[in-house]
Amino acid sequence: MAFYCSRLLGLFLLCSSSSVVGYVRAQFLSPDFYNSSCPGLVSIVQAEMRREVAAESRMGASVLRLFYHDCFVNGCDASVLLDDTQAFAGEKNAGPNARSLRGYDVIDGIKAKVEATCAAIVSCADILALAALEGTVLLGGPSWRVQLGRRDATTASQSAANRELPSPSATLNDLISLFVSKGFSAQEMTALSGAHTLGSARCVNFRSHVYGDADVDPAFAAKRLRNCPAVTGFGDDNWEPLDAQSPAGFDTAYYQNLMLRQGLLRSDQELFNGGSQDSVVKMYSSNAAAFRNDFAAAMEKMAAMSPLTWPNGQIRLNCRRVN
Rank of each mutant, 00 (worst) to 15 (best):
R224L: 15
D217T: 10
L225C: 12
S181F: 04
V180R: 15
L198R: 09
L192M: 02
N238Y: 07
S177W: 06
A222C: 00
N205G: 09
R226C: 14
Q187I: 11
V210Y: 10
F220L: 08
N173L: 03
S200T: 15
L198P: 09
G235D: 15
K182G: 03
R226Y: 00
C203F: 09
L175K: 02
S177G: 09
R207W: 01
G194M: 08
D213S: 10
G183A: 09
R226N: 10
D174S: 09
S177D: 14
R202H: 05
V180W: 13
S200M: 12
P229Y: 00
A195F: 11
K223I: 10
V210L: 05
A195P: 04
A191K: 01
F234W: 14
A214L: 01
D217L: 03
V204C: 11
R226A: 11
M189Y: 10
D174A: 06
V210G: 07
S200H: 15
K182S: 00
S208A: 12
S208W: 11
S200P: 10
E188N: 10
T197G: 06
R226W: 09
A191E: 09
M189R: 05
G233F: 00
D237A: 01
E188K: 07
L192Y: 06
L175R: 04
K223W: 06
N227P: 02
Y211K: 05
F184S: 02
N205R: 14
R224E: 06
A191T: 04
A219V: 05
A219S: 06
K223C: 02
F184E: 06
C228I: 03
R202N: 14
T190L: 13
D174V: 07
H196Y: 10
V180H: 14
R226F: 10
G212R: 04
Y211E: 02
T171Q: 01
L192P: 00
S200N: 13
T197V: 14
I176L: 05
L172Q: 08
R207N: 01
D237F: 01
S200V: 13
D236G: 08
C228G: 08
C203I: 05
F220M: 01
G199M: 00
G233D: 03
N238S: 11
G235S: 12
V204Y: 15
A191H: 09
Y211H: 04
A195K: 14
D217V: 00
A222K: 01
S193Q: 08
V204K: 15
M189G: 01
P229A: 00
S200R: 15
L198M: 00
R202A: 14
T197P: 02
R207H: 03
L178M: 10
V216M: 12
G194Q: 04
V180K: 15
R226L: 15
L225I: 13
G183K: 06
R226I: 12
H209N: 15
G233C: 08
A219E: 11
F184G: 04
L198F: 05
G183L: 00
A214F: 04
L178Y: 12
G183I: 03
S208N: 14
G199T: 04
C228K: 01
